[in-house]
């Protein structure tokens, strides 16, 4: 059972959490095109490497948070500390193209 580093509760069993998938940013509904919007709805980077993703601490503090996890080794990068300013930003402000960094294609 993976331990997921909740920035508020500390490491907790993944079964206490809800997985919310890749962090992505929502296009502005006023100006979005079908291509952009469906990219947001359906497309995934799905790297074998570091992935920026969202979790919901559903059995704990009930906060959404964003972490980076390696999808092959299951490590978390720089796990955020509770209440610390180093907590990663939530998906809204996450950079576009999350999860496609240099190590994204590594196997």
């Amino acid at each position: 059972m993976l331990l997921v580093p909740c920035p508020h509760c500390g490491p907790r069993n993944s079964a206490d959490m809800s997985y919310r998938g890749e962090a992505s940013s929502r296009p502005d509904p006023a100006s979005t095109t079908p291509a952009q919007w469906r990219d947001y709805l359906y497309m995934e980077h799905n790297p074998a490497g570091w992935l920026r993703e969202n979790w919901y601490c559903s059995s704990g503090c009930r906060r959404f948070f964003t972490v980076e996890r390696h999808t092959v080794t299951s490590e978390f990068r720089e796990p955020p500390l509770p209440g610390s300013k180093t907590a990663l930003p939530l998906s809204k402000t996450a950079e576009a193209g999350a999860g496609t960094d240099q190590q994204g294609g590594e196997k």
């Binding site: 998938g21 890749e22 995934e44 799905n46 074998a48 294609g105």
Partner: peptide, 18 residues
Amino acid sequence: GWASLIAAMAGIQLPITT
């Protein structure tokens, strides 16, 4: 399991999570 990675080699993104 590796479909996204092979597709990425051709520059194609897929609606897939593994």
